[in-house]
Write a protein that binds this DNA or RNA. Structure first.
Lengths: 158, 158
DNA sequence: CTTTTGGTTCTGTTGTATATGAACTAAATA
DNA sequence: TATTTAGTTCATATACAACAGAACCAAAAG
């Protein structure tokens, strides 16, 4: 039972990270688990360390951890002769996830095109604007991979 | 009382648009109001037309419309000698909003930098990955305006 | 076999978002 | 002045998200 300590400043930062990820749509407890794993001096934390440091219940911790595992935001390692799992953030995935989330924004082209095909031809100006907007989204959708590639040239899809 | 009619296919499309905007974080009724305004043959709809066509209560319609007005997704026009407001989608704004939302993704650089500055230097590999991720986000943040400019050259910010 | 450990699952509480329907209001009309 | 219209606001219902706490469970240790 090596008592890992987190400072007041770290706690405060965890809360701020928590608020940020709440705004991105994650539940509060989940967001704080991410925060903890990001600021902790120790990279790999056990289940017990997580719920005691964050002062949340075991069930909250369990659900939060499983959500984060399922969404590939964290992973865990094990150690020989130790039944516990050691959870850590899965940083390599973050760049990928950010790319995917950005791509999602342009994912409704098909829906917009359906609207376009169902629209009355009478509303010419509106239809023209719709067309332009679709054009913009298609441009983004095509251009973003190029942008990513520019950052990391060996990356050739998404 | 010119009874504007929307077809079965239009209704179905409105629901699909509704689901999409729900996923983007809008409340169901709000999402359907957008859908209706996007597919309707008539571009400008009154309050009454909106809540009767969508079969939602007046209060739900009122709240939805006000939310959409406040977030600049719709606007209204008036007609001389007519007390009603005619609501319509504000298409020009959509491209701008999409850009802003995409930029928001890279808005947590400062938070990540704080994490970076508070981290123990002991975890070298982790810190290196963090640094790289920050680099990526900064790249995106810088590069996106260029991408937008490429689409619309007279556009020189955001 | 009993106890401990590392979690998971169940039950119940609380808070909040979304909606309805009715009451209300202010302007226009009759 | 009375009534209709175009909405807003209020009271209330419903539903669900998020969590706590306790019971539970399976593997390992004693």
């Amino acid at each position: 039972m090596t008592a890992l300590i987190i400072t007041k400043e770290q706690k405060e930062l965890i809360e701020r990270i928590g608020v940020f990820y709440e705004q991105q749509g994650l539940p509060p407890a989940v967001a704080r688990v991410i925060g903890l794993l990001m600021v902790s001096d120790q990279l790999e934390l056990t289940f017990e360390e997580i719920y005691t440091l964050l002062k949340i219940s075991k069930s909250a911790a369990s659900n939060a951890i499983n959500l984060l595992l399922n969404t590939h935001r964290i992973e865990y390692i094990t150690k020989p002769g130790d039944r516990r799992r050691y959870f850590k953030v899965r940083f390599e995935q973050w760049e990928k996830m950010l790319k995917e989330r950005m791509q999602f924004f342009s994912s409704h082209v098909s829906l917009l095109k359906e609207i376009q095909s169902q629209r009355t031809p009478k509303t010419r100006e509106f239809n023209a604007k719709l067309k332009e907007f679709i054009g913009f989204i298609e441009f983004i959708h095509k251009e973003m991979p190029l942008m990513f590639k520019k950052w990391n040239p060996k990356n050739n899809k998404i």
